[in-house]
Amino acid sequence: MSELFDLVLIALLIACALAVIRTKDLLGAAIIFSTYSLVLCLMWQHRGAPDVAMTEAAVGAGVTTVLFLVAIGRTVRREK
């Protein structure tokens, strides 16, 4: 069961990573990247590293996404 959970998380992680690369809409890519961070955070927690999981949730999913959004707001939204 635990290994199945791990496998599902890894599959989600890879899917998110590919989606971030392939998305041309930078706003969407930023949101997917935040999802990626959230899945990674679950994985840290599941692997027994709650400290890292908290950092990942706060920095990766929270603050980094906000900074990406600000940066997109000040430049262009579409990738050329």
Binding site: P50, D51, T55, G62
Partner: peptide, 16 residues
């Protein structure tokens, strides 16, 4: 689990 980095980031998010 927790500490300065995590708590500081939470507070920074609140400031944002």
């Amino acid at each position: 689990p927790g500490g300065g980095f995590q708590g500081g980031t939470v507070f920074g998010a609140l400031v944002i």
